[in-house]
Amino acid sequence: MATTAELMVDNLCVQFGGLKAVDQVCFSLKPQTLAGLIGPNGAGKTTVFNALTGLCPVSSGQISFCEKQLTNEPPHTIARHGIARTFQNIRLFNNLTVLDNLRIAYHQNRQYSLLCGIFRSPRFKREEAQITAKAREALDLVGLADKSEHIAGSLPYGEQRRVEIARALMLSPKLLLLDEPAAGMNPQETQTLLELIRKLRDELKITVLLIEHDMKLVMNLCEELFVLDYGHLIAKGDPKSIQSNERVVEAYLGGSWA
């Protein structure tokens, strides 16, 4: 194929004491793919995300993104390289408004200096207006334009998940990592989410890697799947081939599949 891989994960290992939560995982993603990471509970999926975003130390192996080495870089550096994420147990800034949650995420693109901010220079005002406009745009995209002044922690669960996605988008990421975005959503909300994710990929031209237990969503949405079990990558491929893969079926029946 013409396009080369954007994200390359090579022999990734993450160890917690004696537990190998992620063991020699290799995979790569091409730009603008919709990919899924699945596997039983405790398989190490979230840990892969944490390693990719610098939130837990990589014991061995390499992560490169757009041809840059990101292994064990601090999280904020990784974010600057264009990887944004959401969390399995939502991590919004609960006491701040939805709008402020989003504006914070524009941080790395802010140009004005500390002194500009303290003296409220014209440049500061101009840029702040831009930031707010950008935040409203992102909220619009996830269908929460009317919630901008609400305190984030007070929103219902499904809306919080969407705010978190909008916040991640404020980074203008190239790769978006979604950790169980449909958890706790009803079928109706899940359907909207599916359409949203597809729209994000198509309109913003970003790559999406998501962890999800809702098989219907995964099979409908993803073009490529990676299956983890006990920290090992046991299968990869398109949804069809995964569904008929023997090792996957075995893992599902044997494990605590939710």
């Binding site: 610098g54 999280p75 904020h76 974010a79 944004a84 991590r91 800034f93 914070i104």
Partner: peptide, 10 residues
Amino acid sequence: EDEIAAESLG
């Protein structure tokens, strides 16, 4: 509010 989330946002 949340140091981990803040870091992950750059």
